[in-house]
Simulated assay, not measured.
Amino acid sequence: MPAAATAVDLTMRASNLFTVLGLWPSNISGSHPANCPSNITFDKNDLWPELRGRMSCEWRSFQGDNGALWGSQWRTHGACALPLFTNMTAYFRYTLALSERYDINEALVKGGINPLVARSMTPQQLGGILEQQWNVTPVVTCSNGNILEVRTCFSTRLKPIDCPANTGGASSCPSVAQALPFGSTKVPEACTAYFDNIPAGTNPAAVPAAGSRAAPPPGSNGLRRAAASVLLLVAAAAAAALPVL
Rank of each mutant, 00 (worst) to 15 (best):
G201Q: 15
K186W: 00
A200P: 02
L130T: 02
T156I: 07
A97T: 08
L82F: 13
H32M: 12
P174S: 15
V140Q: 02
G145K: 12
N221D: 12
L82V: 06
C191Y: 02
F85C: 07
G219Y: 05
V109G: 09
S31F: 07
P33N: 08
E106M: 04
G112Q: 09
M55I: 04
P181L: 15
T76P: 04
R213I: 00
F182W: 07
W70S: 04
A215D: 14
A214V: 02
L82S: 07
H77K: 07
T122V: 04
A241M: 08
G222M: 11
F18Q: 04
R157G: 12
Q133K: 08
K186Q: 08
P208V: 06
G78M: 10
S184T: 13
A206C: 03
E131K: 14
Y94G: 03
T202R: 05
A118P: 00
F154H: 09
D103P: 01
A81R: 03
L233S: 00
I161F: 10
P204D: 10
N221Y: 11
L51K: 02
V176I: 06
L233V: 02
A68R: 12
N16D: 09
L21N: 15
A241I: 09
V136E: 00
P243W: 15
G127V: 09
R151K: 15
N87Q: 10
T141L: 08
P164C: 00
E58A: 02
L180W: 08
Q178P: 03
I129M: 06
A241S: 14
T185R: 10
V150K: 10
A165N: 05
F18V: 03
